[in-house]
Design a protein around this nucleic acid. Sequence first.
DNA 1: GTAAGTGCAAAGGCTTTGCGCACGC
DNA 2: GCGTGCGCAAAGCCTTTGCACTTAC
Lengths: 147, 147
Amino acid sequence: MNKEKNSPSVDSFKVKCKEHRLKTTPQRLAIYKELLRSDDHPHADIVFKKVRKIFPHISFDTINRTLLTFAELGIVAMVEGYGEPKRFDIKTDQHHHFRCIKCKDIVDFYHTSYDNIKVPENLQRQYTILAKRVVLEGICDKCGKKS
Amino acid sequence: MNKEKNSPSVDSFKVKCKEHRLKTTPQRLAIYKELLRSDDHPHADIVFKKVRKIFPHISFDTINRTLLTFAELGIVAMVEGYGEPKRFDIKTDQHHHFRCIKCKDIVDFYHTSYDNIKVPENLQRQYTILAKRVVLEGICDKCGKKS
DNA sequence: GTAAGTGCAAAGGCTTTGCGCACGC
DNA sequence: GCGTGCGCAAAGCCTTTGCACTTAC
């Protein structure tokens, strides 16, 4: 494993850009850095508002296009939702999610035994499985206290 | 367990409506029946096009509002996606999903050992877990043949 | 220098909201 | 008859597209 290449960092980002023949523009770098800072799976508009503080002239389209490009190339991941705006995650390694059904928060967690769950044989035969993920849903501590 | 109440059927639907003080209008019944017929987790527009064949004067808003109401009350489930239009599922019992990343098909499957996966203790303590679901992603047989 | 990327503007979808009329209970 | 639900229309977002200008390589 090449750590440089796989753990999210500014350096790994530059490497990935070269691999995909993407230009490492200041805008892209700023967007990537913002994602590095976030652990709440922000959507484009949140990233826009934050990056604009550093980059006042950046346009929303650049944010959106960049995030979609990153997602397509596997530089970032897209997280599943229920029809809300697309949300992005800097973590592309195997992990799992807890989702709060009230505040819509998504919390990442790692759990080796979930990584190793066996795919049912009939599905294994029929499909090419590329990713496995466990999604837990419920109510987070903050929302639990409110009610 | 009250089978009448829990397995999806027209009868169980009427019971559920009464429980939630919803009127069982012909429109709602038609929408519910259409979902009963579908196993591909359709979004509102698909349901609209199909129901309109039986109910030419039904409006899209009715479909959309009805589906959202059903989802909110737990009469149907909403399936997770990546920012596309909301998709709905008549199955509200525990099951899991395979998603094809190419054609976006979602296939339901049941797998007891997935139902019984243990929630990590630290999460168990912090959150109230209401649902567990395994999501497998990859390429389905149809898309696999094409490439 | 060249191709790729950015910013701006406009259009296209999907979803939501408000309101008068209709209809199930 | 009462209150919920429906249909229609309009508005509000989010996302996508096209194009000229700019910039990284």
